[in-house]
C-alpha cells in the first residue's frame, strides 16, 4: 500500500509541489526559527532557572509549529495521535524508526522530553550547544561526551519523577525497508535502572512523507501518519524481575505484531479513527 502511494504520482509532475513545500518547510526551519523562536531560546539560555525544561518546551512548540504548517500545506495528509499517547508521563518510550520526522514528532508531543542523539551532532557549533541545553544525551560516551552523559544519567531519576519522558529508538537508525531492525539494549537498561515503565510506541507512515535517502518531502498520496501506544511494560517489583533482554524482546514483539497488523489494516482500507486525535 505504501509503495503504491509513493509511486502513484511518480515523475516530473511530482517534483514541483514537492520542491515548493520542502522549501516552505525549510523556510520555517531557518527564518521561522530566527524570527519567532531565537529570542525565546536566548532568553531561556540567559535567564531561565530551569534551562533544560525551558528548552524542551520551546522545542515542543517549534516542532508543533512545523507539523501544523505541514497540515496546512498538505491537508490531504492526515496525522493522528492515539488519545492515550499524550497521557504518557515518567516513562522510557521506545519506538520504531522510519524517518527523520519521528523524533520531531515525539518532541512535538511532549513538553518535557529527552532523547539520545547521535554523538557527532554535539560537535556542530550552536546546534550542539542547543542539544546540551535541551538535556539530550549523546549516543556514545568518550571525550567530552562522557561528562554530558554522566550528568544526564545522574539527573535522569529526578527528570522522570517530575513527569518527563525519555524517548529512544532502539533500532538506532531509520529502517530503510519498513522492517524492524535489531534492537539496542540501552533504553531497556535505563528503564530497569530507573524502575521506569517502558511505553512501547508505534509510528506509521512518516516515511511516506519524508523518505530516507530523499531530500524532498513527498507531498503526494493520502496516507495517514499515526502514533500509537501499544502497551506499558511496568518496572519490575521485588517479586518479579524481568531481564533487560526479556523486556527488549517483549517490546520488539509488540512493535513487530503491530507492524504486521497495520499492513493488513491498510490493505483492507485504513484505520478506524476512534480513539485518535490530531497533534
Amino acid at each position: 500500500m505504501k509503495e503504491t502511494n509513493l509511486q502513484s504520482v511518480a515523475g516530473p509532475a511530482r517534483i514541483l509541489p514537492d520542491l515548493l513545500i520542502t522549501l516552505m518547510l525549510w523556510l520555517y526551519f531557518t527564518a521561522g526559527f530566527l524570527l519567532f523562536f531565537a529570542v525565546f531560546y536566548l532568553a531561556a539560555l540567559l535567564f531561565s532557572k530551569q534551562r533544560e525544561t525551558a528548552f524542551q518546551k520551546l522545542n515542543q512548540l517549534f516542532f508543533k509549529g512545523l507539523f501544523r504548517l505541514m497540515r496546512m500545506l498538505m491537508p490531504w495528509r492526515t496525522l493522528l495521535v492515539q488519545t492515550k499517547v499524550k497521557t504518557v508521563r515518567s516513562a522510557v518510550i521506545v519506538c520504531n524508526h522510519l524517518s527523520y520526522l519521528d523524533p520531531l514528532l515525539l518532541m512535538a508531543l511532549f513538553p518535557r522530553h529527552k532523547t539520545i542523539v547521535k554523538s557527532s551532532l554535539f560537535s556542530i557549533p550552536i546546534f550542539g550547544q542547543m542539544l546540551v541545553c535541551s538535556g539530550y544525551m549523546p549516543s556514545d560516551a568518550g571525550g567530552k561526551h562522557t561528562d554530558i552523559l554522566v550528568r544526564q544519567m545522574d539527573s535522569m531519576n529526578a527528570f522522570l519523577a517530575a513527569g518527563g519522558n525519555l524517548f529512544i529508538f532502539p533500532e538506532g537508525t531509520r529502517s530503510r525497508s519498513g522492517r524492524l531492525g535489531n534492537f539496542n539494549k540501552g533504553a531497556f537498561k535505563i528503564a530497569k535502572k530507573q524502575r521506569a515503565p517502558i511505553a512501547v510506541f508505534y509510528i506509521d507512515n512518516t516515511d511516506t512523507l519524508f523518505q530516507p535517502g530523499r531530500f524532498l518531502f513527498n507531498t503526494c498520496g493520502r496516507t495517514t501518519i499515526t502514533v500509537e501506544l501499544l502497551d506499558l511494560i511496568l518496572p519490575d517489583s521485588e517479586h518479579t524481575s524481568a531481564s533487560v533482554s526479556q523486556m527488549m524482546d517483549t517490546a520488539r514483539n509488540l512493535i513487530e505484531t503491530r507492524r504486521q497488523s497495520r499492513a493488513t489494516e491498510q490493505a483492507l482500507g485504513g484505520l478506524a479513527r476512534e480513539g485518535y486525535q490530531s497533534l
Binding site: 556514545d140 554522566v150 539496542n184 539494549k185 535505563i190
Partner: peptide, 12 residues
C-alpha cells in the same frame, strides 16, 4: 557482550 556507554557510566 554488548557493554555500552550506559553500562560504562554505571560502572564508573
Amino acid at each position: 557482550h554488548g557493554f555500552d556507554s550506559i553500562d560504562g557510566i554505571e560502572l564508573l
